[in-house]
Deep mutational scan, measured.
Amino acid sequence: NQASVVANQLIPINVALTLVMMRSEVVTPVGIPAEDIPRLVSMQVNRAVPLGTTLMPDMVKGYA
């Protein structure tokens, strides 16, 4: 099963993503693939993302 990107903490809106904010985990439904974590660094989410939430492509500005 493919690992997805999961919030490692509350990720506020309009804050640049850092490695420490994200972890990889096998979850259902599948979200952004874990291998895209380096690409996500410095991008921003378009809504607050609670701890443990799977990041979906539509949550990250400029990802999709």
Rank of each mutant, 00 (worst) to 15 (best):
P57R: 08
V6D: 01
L19C: 06
V15M: 15
I13T: 13
P38V: 08
A64C: 07
L19S: 09
T54F: 03
P12S: 13
V26E: 10
R39S: 10
L51K: 15
P38H: 14
P12F: 04
N1P: 14
Y63P: 04
A7I: 03
A48I: 12
M21W: 03
A7N: 01
Q44N: 10
V49A: 05
L19N: 10
Q9V: 09
L51P: 11
E25I: 08
I37M: 15
M59G: 03
E35N: 13
R47K: 15
V26D: 08
M43L: 08
E35Y: 11
S4Q: 02
I37K: 05
E35V: 06
P29Q: 05
L55P: 01
S42Y: 07
N8T: 14
S42W: 07
M21E: 00
N14E: 08
G62E: 13
A7P: 02
V30H: 14
Q44D: 04
Q44T: 15
M56C: 05
L55I: 14
Q44M: 12
M56D: 04
L17V: 04
N8G: 09
V5C: 06
Q44Y: 11
Y63K: 03
N14K: 08
V30L: 12
V6A: 02
L17M: 10
I13R: 10
N8S: 13
L19T: 11
M43K: 12
G31D: 01
V26R: 07
D36C: 06
S24I: 10
L51W: 12
L55K: 01
N1Q: 12
S4C: 05
R47F: 06
Q2G: 14
A34F: 06
A16T: 08
L19I: 10
P12K: 09
T18W: 03
R39Y: 09
T18K: 09
P38E: 11
L10I: 13
T28V: 12
P29M: 04
L55H: 02
P38R: 14
A48F: 09
D58Q: 10
N8W: 04
V27W: 02
V41N: 03
N14S: 08
M43A: 07
S24V: 08
Q9G: 05
V15Y: 15
V45P: 03
V27F: 02
G31F: 03
P38G: 09
P57N: 05
P50V: 06
D58H: 12
P50M: 08
P38T: 13
Y63F: 12
E35R: 11
P38N: 11
V49Y: 02
Q44W: 05
P33C: 05
T53S: 08
G52R: 04
G52E: 04
A3F: 09
M22Q: 00
A64W: 07
N8Y: 03
V20L: 13
R39N: 15
T28P: 01
L10N: 14
V60C: 03
I37H: 01
N1A: 14
L10R: 10
T54E: 01
Y63V: 04
I32Q: 00
G62T: 05
D36M: 14
I37W: 03
P57F: 07
E35S: 15
E25Y: 06
Q2C: 06
E35L: 10
N46D: 08
N1F: 15
V60K: 01
A34Q: 05
Y63H: 06
M59A: 06
Q2V: 13
E25F: 05
A7F: 02
G52N: 14
V45I: 08
S24N: 08
K61E: 10
G62R: 07
V26P: 07
M21V: 03
V60I: 11
P12T: 06
M43G: 04
M59Q: 05
D36I: 09
Q2L: 13
V6I: 14
N1G: 14
G62Y: 08
V5A: 09
M21C: 04
V5E: 00
L17Q: 00
E35P: 09
L19Y: 14
L55W: 02
S42D: 12
R23A: 09
N14D: 13
A48D: 15
Q9L: 11
P57T: 06
L19M: 14
V15R: 11
V5D: 01
A7R: 02
S4P: 01
P29S: 04
L51Q: 12
Y63R: 03
I32K: 00
R47H: 11
L51S: 13
P33V: 08
L19Q: 12
L17W: 02
L40N: 00
V27C: 05
R39M: 14
N46C: 06
V5Q: 02
A34N: 05
A16H: 13
M22Y: 02
K61C: 06
L17S: 00
S4V: 02
V15E: 13
Q2K: 14
A16G: 13
V20C: 06
T18H: 05
M59Y: 11
M22A: 00
I13M: 13
L40R: 00
S24A: 14
R47S: 10
S4A: 02
K61Q: 13
V27H: 03
T54L: 04
V41L: 12
T28D: 11
V45A: 05
A48M: 13
N46Q: 12
A16Y: 12
V20A: 15
N1V: 15
S4H: 01
V45C: 05
G31H: 01
D58M: 11
D36T: 10
P12R: 06
Q2F: 11
G31V: 01
N46G: 09
L40E: 00
V15Q: 14
I32R: 01
L17N: 00
V30I: 12
M59W: 11
N8C: 06
V30S: 10
T18F: 03
A34W: 06
I32M: 03
L51G: 11
P57A: 15
A3P: 13
I11P: 00
V49L: 08
V26S: 10
S24M: 09
N14H: 14
A16E: 09
R39F: 09
T53K: 12
I11S: 00
V15C: 06
R47P: 03
L19F: 09
A64Q: 13
V45Q: 00
Q9K: 12
G31R: 02
V41H: 04
P12E: 14
V41M: 07
K61F: 14
I11R: 02
Q9Y: 09
A3D: 05
R47A: 09
D58P: 06
I32A: 01
V6M: 04
V15P: 00
V30Y: 10
M56I: 09
S42C: 06
A16L: 08
V6H: 02
V6K: 03
P38L: 10
N46R: 09
R23T: 09
T18Y: 03
P38K: 11
A48R: 10
L55D: 02
I13P: 12
I32F: 02
T53R: 11
P50H: 09
L17G: 00
M21Y: 05
P29T: 05
V60Q: 01
I11Y: 01
I32N: 00
I32P: 01
